[in-house]
Amino acid sequence: MLSYLIRRIVNAVITLLVVTMVTFGIFFAVPTITGSDPALLYIGKTADPASLEGIRTKLGLDDPIPVQYGKFLKGLVAGRDYANGADVTHCDAPCLGYSFKTEQEVTPLLISDIPVTLSLAIGAAILWVLFGVATGVLSALKRGTFLDRAAMTGALAGVSLPIYFTGQLALLIFIHELGWLPDAAYTPFLEDPAGWFTGLILPWVTLAFLFAATYARLTRANMLETLGEDYIRTARSKGLPERTVIGKHGLRAVLTPLVTVFGLDFGTLLAGAILTEQVFNLRGLGYQALTAIRQNDLPVILGVTLIAAIFIVVINLIVDLLYSVIDPRVRLG
């Protein structure tokens, strides 16, 4: 088990290193090679050659690409100094550089966005797992009944309707027409838990609706398959109550594929639910990313990408570990 854990962690670190290399390559090396100039992006087209040269020196854009990458890595783990003669700016680790547009440090900027995205993702995930799995299990148990068909039709709608449609609809109904909820907004949990909850409930539900649908369908299919397994028959022949048969023996087997899918979905969501944040005007990572892309703000894009990658790698690590907890055959080789 321990060696398995170490193997997985080493793998994760290697993956992250590769991700930094690739993102760095794309965002810094490619413009250099194609002749577009990051320094120009930073200072604007009207800059005079002298200040342009200054920027170049300060950002280290004149160094060879491997050296630039080395400095970038060093900045990530130890922080770095941007220097042009006497003009020295220190950037603490983990340093992701400065925004081209606002000249703010990227790291704190993104860190302040993380709670928003995290709140959105976690809340939605809890909702969709609960509802998706419950609906799927019920549907499987009541296969062919009206309930099953209704649930599956609903799920199909959930899968097919895009978030900008359901989101707008929800906004329209619950906020503008019925006035049940305040405008969707992010209030830090520690400041005002109730505000945090009411501000996020609508984005959660909308997002969860989309995902719950997928999970309901997946759970139903897996549950039906599992219920046909011999070990379910064994569980019943032991005289276990039906809810133990389903809830313990059935559900545990159904969980395995669900965990995999959940890891992928949740990881992606942590990188920013771009559409959802846009629709509900939540200033999370997705919102930040979109703004940065519009403005060609390379360091911010790089930062968001990196954070997204870290999230996905970490979640995958967790999923793999969960997997080995759920299924002993993985753990025991």
């Binding site: 011999d230 070990y231 064994t234 569980a235 545990r252 299924d327 002993p328 055959r329």
Partner: peptide, 12 residues
């Protein structure tokens, strides 16, 4: 039952 491998729950 016939096939003891599939008749046992693989996760317990």
């Amino acid at each position: 039952f016939q096939d003891p491998l599939s008749a046992m729950h693989p996760y317990y």
